[in-house]
Design a protein around this nucleic acid. Structure first.
Lengths: 252, 252
DNA sequence: TTCGATTTGTTCGTATGTATT
DNA sequence: TAATACATACGAACAAATCGA
């Protein structure tokens, strides 16, 4: 009889706290608890899931580390929002070369709806023909244009997204996704390169096309690593820099 | 009588696990346990520090998350090293535009010792006149030059650092710092911008000086946020990109 | 202002499982 | 096989913060 290796399905079941974490994440993705709201208390969740409070805490720990939940002693545990100023800087890394870190001013330059084309498929893997919205947005720092974002979002998850909704939003773009559409961006992946900007973009950023600019290809993800938004960004790095910290961690 | 706010020194003492974490970090900085070595087991540390094993685990948790320690079930807890292939990619983010992720080939182009000058002070805050070593190192991917690093290290922590030590090292540069000098890089901070490379560097990277390149200013830190190494890097992003992921985390 | 209920934060302890040597 | 180490899970007790009565 052939000695059989341990069968794959007995490979060791996921620990309980992962199962709990998974159930919480699914509830978040389903919109059961909305951004800014409190989720049930630890004792309640423990009873609900029939596990110890320690297991609940362990499950929540990682979600807090991933900035998906926020804990506050004495108050409760809340679904993270993009409306607080400090959360902005999780995903915004442009700082002045002098070290200054300002709050960007946003200006909507264009909005239209169309179908995804070959370049979308090539750059981001979006299936050709998918309905998308295109948003051109300018960020100014100290009153001067620094970042131009060309944003592409499949409209499937963003029904009734229109120009005025975008223009009249309060707060950040990810704050809008969250508040209006229940889409919570929890992770982004960016690929940077240096290139000469296209003429129209160079003009907007107040630079010559012969000057180098920083080009960024960004994909933003919601829970469960599902992509929700795609961007091409052009950054004028004459007076600003892109900050990358790896890894800010403990050890005071 | 003026109502006094709670005095600063009763502000709430650090929790016990932070104190433990701090003591472990100090021991690491002092070289008490060296990279690759095991630190005492949890039960031993618990007895040593007179705290519960749970508190020890909590203290170690953050150091593991910060990649300062590595836990292995059944074996022990070890001081992280830079010699394992996978650790390289914590601090190396250059990938092919086609998505390929290769192992870089390193080539030493220059080595000399001198005193820090005005530009060091301006770029990195190094005091003028400090003794430093300068290393020029080229990284090739797929046989072609892609990244040029101009490295500056104060020689204070690196006694007897010379060219042959550098040239004949096995593994990465941070691996050398660790194995030879007990200096463990645990965090880096990078500032990126797009610029035209200087003529000599453009030549090395096989590009024209009129082409844009990615410029990176990096500071590498050891325990307790003490800076140990400074770099200017130039990256040819014709066929490669700089990858920035925020934040790879949980939630499978 | 005070007090009590609620909620998270910290610390302890114990038991059992799994991986390594 | 036995000893050792980390991993998971449970539970208890108290501290600290918050909030409303």
């Amino acid at each position: 009889m052939a000695a059989s290796a341990p069968t794959p399905d007995t490979l060791t079941p996921n620990p309980l706290y992962r199962e709990v974490q998974w159930r919480i994440t699914r509830a978040l993705a389903a919109g059961e608890w909305k951004p800014g709201e409190a989720i049930p208390s630890e004792t309640r969740l423990a009873r609900q899931f029939s596990v110890s409070i320690g297991t609940i805490r362990r499950a929540i720990d990682e979600l807090v580390a991933g900035r998906i939940l926020v804990r506050q002693q004495g108050r409760g545990t809340f679904v993270a929002t993009h409306t607080e100023d400090r959360t902005l800087f999780y995903f915004f890394h442009i700082v002045g070369k002098d070290g200054s870190s300002e709050f960007p001013e946003s200006e909507l330059l264009g909005f239209r709806k169309e179908r995804a084309g070959d370049s979308d498929e090539h750059d981001f893997g979006i299936t050709r023909g998918t309905r998308v919205a295109r948003v051109r947005n300018l960020l100014k720092l100290g009153g001067r244009p620094v970042v131009l974002d060309d944003i592409t979002v499949p409209t499937e998850r963003f029904t009734r997204l229109d120009e005025s909704t975008f223009r009249n939003r309060e707060g950040t773009i990810y704050g809008l996704y969250q508040a209006r559409y229940g889409v919570n961006v929890v992770r982004i992946s960016e690929r940077l390169s240096a290139a000469h900007p296209p003429a129209d973009i160079a003009a907007i950023l107040g630079m010559r096309s012969s000057q180098p600019a920083l080009h960024v290809r960004r994909v933003a993800y919601s829970y469960n690593d599902s992509p929700v938004e795609y961007r091409h960004s052009w950054i004028n790095t004459a007076d600003h820099e892109y900050l990358s910290d790896l890894w800010k961690t403990a050890a005071r």
